[in-house]
């Protein structure tokens, strides 16, 4: 374009020089902007972590881990009940989601493959993967909270399971597809039925990738707030062992306490935010280390 639009009267050298400087500045602009974008990302992460440490460390007292959340206007207190509630519901979520997600991913990668049904399920799984989590909260509210007449930890766990499942389906399928077909053929050639080949050969070959998927799903649901708002709600006391009634949990506690007028509530919210972020970031790092360890082997 540039060459053809250059008038013939202009000496060739001059045109070349002009083009080159234009190319150079475009190149330099790209490099500067791309680097600036990356620095911006790092600065934001640093700023978030700094904020959590500055505001949260003061709240890290022994009472934080032993006492339940205080009522409105009362002094002190901890977040032990919220920590336990979060652990229980996340565990329920992952225990439901892992078998369902692994089996569904296996169907897509091993049985369905290119069939129309598999394509449809793959497509809908991708939609579920990016479906707004608050809608999943509304769904579980209609499905469980209303018929049971009460908020419950079970409803919270199921909501988290619905969020975790598509993550596991997707990673399982992706990891199984990476397994070379020759391995399956070798298994089948020994006379093993499909299910045995899948369990003994394909799953084993894709093991680390599938574990990473579960860890990533865990990291994803551990900090989810929106689906718990209408399912587990929150509670300023210990929850009953049958998990009925509002079950305290870290994310909703943070949401309610951070915007409250009480100083001790806000302090607890910051401490909770620090704990949950540290846990999730640690989990994500572990997931990546596991994946890398698997790759290098």
């Amino acid at each position: 374009m540039t060459a053809s639009s250059t008038p013939a009267t202009v000496p060739a050298m001059q045109a070349w020089g002009r083009v080159r400087s234009g190319r150079r500045s475009a190149d330099r602009a790209l490099k500067v902007l791309a680097t600036a974008a990356t620095v911006l990302g790092a600065v934001v992460l640093g700023s978030i972590l700094l904020m959590l440490i500055v505001e949260g460390v003061r709240g890290l007292t022994p009472a934080l881990f032993t006492e339940p959340t205080p009522g409105p206007g009362s002094e002190g207190g901890g977040i032990a009940n919220a920590i336990l509630g979060s652990l229980v519901m996340t565990a329920i979520g992952i225990v439901i989601a892992t078998p369902v997600g692994v089996m569904a991913g296996t169907y897509l990668a091993e049985y369905g493959r290119t069939s129309k049904l598999a394509a449809l399920i793959r497509f809908l799984n991708d939609i579920l993967l990016s479906a707004p989590s608050i809608l999943i909260g509304l769904f579980v509210y209609t499905l469980m909270v209303r018929p049971m007449g009460s908020y419950s930890g079970w409803a919270g766990g199921v909501a988290l399971a619905i969020i975790a499942t598509p993550v596991i389906v997707r990673t399982t399928e992706d990891m199984l597809r990476l397994v070379p077909g020759a391995l399956r053929e070798a298994g089948a050639a020994l006379g093993a039925p499909a299910s045995v080949v899948i369990r003994q050969v394909t799953w084993r070959a894709a093991q680390t990738g599938m574990v990473t998927g579960v860890l990533l799903a865990l990291a994803r649901i551990a900090g989810e707030t929106a689906p718990l708002l209408f399912t587990a709600l929150n509670n300023n006391s210990w929850f009953s062992p049958n998990l009925m009634g509002g079950v305290p949990n870290l994310p909703v506690m943070i949401y309610q306490f951070a915007l409250s007028p009480y100083d001790n509530w806000r302090q607890l919210a910051w401490a909770g935010a620090l704990l949950i972020t540290a846990a999730i970031l640690a989990l994500s790092i572990v997931a990546r280390v596991v994946l890398r360890g698997g790759k290098s082997r």
């Binding site: 598999a118 579920l128 809608l135 769904f139 499905l143």
Partner: peptide, 23 residues
């Protein structure tokens, strides 16, 4: 095993339909 895999995959479909239906 195959039925379990298919069932789990269909569950994804059912859940999504359920979300739409419930809302």
């Amino acid at each position: 095993f195959r039925a379990a895999a298919l069932g789990s995959a269909l569950l994804v479909l059912v859940v999504l339909a359920g979300i739409l239906a419930a809302i």
